[in-house]
Amino acid sequence: MKPKRRYVSDVRRENAEATRLRIAEAARVLMLERGYAATTMAEVAKAAGVVVQTLYTALPGGKPGLAKLVWDVTLAGDAKAIPQSGRPQVQAIIAEPDPERKLAVFARMALAIYDRVAPVHRVLRAAAAADAGLADLLADTEHQRLKGSRGPAEHLAAVGALRADLSVERAADHIYALTSIELLERLVEVCGWNVRDCEDWLARTLSQTLLETGHTQMPQEAENSR
C-alpha cells in the first residue's frame, strides 16, 4: 500500500502546486493591469477559477499573502516547493569549475530573475507606502535577498576563489548591492541598457570585486574568451 499512498500524496501536491500557480498568475496579471490596490481577492479568485475562501485558506495574511505568493512564484518561475539551492541554474553554477564563468552564469540567472520580477516589484513598491502589510513584505524580501547572497559568497570562499582580504559577509553585501532590482532597473530604464549589457557588466563587476586577481581576466580578455 505504500506506493499507492505515495501516488496519492504526489497527486495532491501537484494539484496544490497547479492551484497556487493559477492563483499567482491570475493575481499577477490583474495587479500589472490595475495596480495592487485596485485588485480584489474576489476578482483574483474568479480569474483563477477558485472560490474566494480558497484564497484565504491557502494564503494566510489576506491580500499581502497573495502578493507574497505572486512574488515567490514570479521569483522562482514556478510554484514548486524547491529551494533555490536545489534548482538547475544554481546547480550549474556550483558545477562550473572556473570562478569567472561561475559568476557569468550567476549574472545570467540574476538578469533572468530581474526580467521576471521587475514589473511586479514596481507595482508592489508603488503601493507599499499606503499598505503596512505590503511594506513589511517588501522589507522581508530584501532581508531574504541579502541572506540569499551569502550562498554564492560562501561557495566562492569554499573553492578558494574569494579575495583573501574580503570576508564572506562583505562579499555577500557586494552581491546583494550589485544585483539590486532598483540598480538594474535604472541601467535599463534610465541608461538605456539592454539585458545583455547588464549581464556583461554584472559578470565583469562581480569578478573584479570578488575574485582573487589570478582568477580574473581583463574585460577584453574575458570578451575574447566567449
Rank of each mutant, 00 (worst) to 15 (best):
M1D: 10
R5S: 10
R6Q: 07
S9L: 06
R12G: 06
R13H: 13
A16K: 10
L21Y: 00
R22A: 04
I23E: 05
I23N: 05
R28A: 00
L32I: 12
R34K: 04
Y36W: 06
A38V: 03
T39Q: 07
M41C: 04
A42P: 01
E43I: 01
E43R: 05
E43M: 05
A45I: 03
A48L: 06
V51P: 00
V52E: 11
V52M: 07
Q53G: 06
T54Y: 00
L55M: 01
G65A: 00
A67P: 01
L69I: 03
W71V: 02
L75Q: 08
D78R: 03
I82L: 05
P99W: 01
E100G: 09
K102G: 05
V105K: 08
A112D: 14
Y114A: 14
Y114P: 14
Y114W: 15
D115F: 14
D115C: 14
R116G: 12
V117Y: 12
V120P: 14
V123M: 14
A127W: 10
A127H: 11
A129S: 13
L134G: 15
L134A: 15
A139R: 13
E142Y: 02
S149F: 03
G151I: 04
G151S: 08
P152M: 01
P152Y: 01
L156A: 03
L156F: 02
L156C: 04
A157C: 04
V159E: 08
A164W: 01
D165E: 05
S167G: 02
Y176S: 07
L178D: 06
S180F: 02
L187H: 09
V188L: 15
C191L: 15
C191V: 10
D197F: 09
W201N: 12
L202W: 14
L202C: 15
A203L: 01
R204D: 11
S207E: 08
L211V: 01
L211P: 05
G214S: 12
H215A: 07
H215Q: 06
Q217K: 14
M218D: 14
Q220E: 13
A222S: 11
E223Y: 08
R226T: 12
